[in-house]
């Protein structure tokens, strides 16, 4: 985890080389080096919910500092995968390591402290002011001066002048910006962004895009799920496509055409 007191500017991490495994490869990778150096490494990760198969033997590797977009149709399992990565849910079978540590229900607090998540919902308390929300979560993360850090981040997301207002008084876009600030309070090394643009207007969308780009420039690993494929391919450097409960595509975005991706996710048109 980055030092909490250094504000939003932190020393970028050096991306380390790691092979991306072909999606068809369902055999367990044997290189332990990959799992220890990768930001995220999934080996035959399977998830069933109420006996319904959601993810089937997923294999992929994400390097530290990589900006990855996770694409797929509705119900493909994108959010489920992000919740597993956030340790909010556990894989039914297979293995998932984050920064070399296996994620389990009892994942160590130090590992959880390296992960931040922006979810469908803001994960905030509506009755509390923006600064109170951020200060509260900052204290849970053990930040020495959580209130100062909260004000820095509210400045960063353009809400410093509304810091004392309760979250329930905010628009969807403003709430989302506070949620992003909450996810960044502890300067996570891995940021999971589950449809962060949902319900935002154009200026707010652009602001969030720029924030994510800045975090990527700072060396953080970002995994973004999004329904807008063109936008995702423009923002991220690598794409993982979920289709038929499996990874159907695992390639750099520079090599991809949106139409090709649309076919892979099972859509025939925009």
């Amino acid at each position: 985890m980055h030092a909490a007191s250094t504000g939003t500017s932190t020393t970028p991490e050096t991306p380390q080389a790691a092979d991306s495994r072909p999606p068809e490869d369902v055999s367990a990778p044997t290189t332990t080096a990959t799992s220890t150096t990768a930001a995220v490494h999934a080996v035959n990760m399977t998830k069933t919910i109420d006996e319904r198969l959601i993810l089937d033997r997923i294999n992929f590797t994400i390097r530290p500092g990589q900006y990855v977009t996770l694409l797929g149709a509705n119900g493909a399992g994108k959010s489920t995968m992000l919740r597993i990565l956030a340790s909010l849910s556990q894989p039914s079978r297979g293995k998932l390591t984050v920064f070399g540590h296996e994620l389990t229900r009892a994942s160590s607090p130090s590992l959880r402290a390296r992960i931040g998540m922006i979810g469908h919902q803001p994960m905030l308390y509506r009755e509390l002011a923006a600064v109170e929300n951020l200060t509260f979560f900052g204290r849970l993360y053990g930040l020495p001066d959580a209130r100062t850090r909260a004000m820095e981040l509210l400045e960063y997301v353009g809400l410093a002048d509304r810091a004392g207002d309760p979250v329930k008084a905010f628009s969807r876009g403003m709430t989302q910006r506070v949620a992003i600030a909450r996810a960044l309070m502890h300067e996570p090394d891995l940021l999971l962004a589950d449809e962060p643009f949902a319900g935002l207007d154009a200026p707010s969308t652009r602001m969030v895009e720029l924030m994510l780009a800045r975090l990527h420039d700072e060396g953080r690993t970002i995994i973004l799920t999004n329904h807008d494929i063109t936008q995702s391919l423009r923002l991220a450097e690598h794409a993982l496509v979920l289709h038929g409960r499996r990874i159907a595509l695992d390639e750099p975005t520079a090599d991809l055409d949106p139409e090709e991706v649309l076919k892979k996710v099972g859509w025939t048109s925009c």
Partner: peptide, 11 residues
Amino acid sequence: DEALAGLLLAP
């Protein structure tokens, strides 16, 4: 607003 998820993410 899934505030509980925010708590469970915390260390």
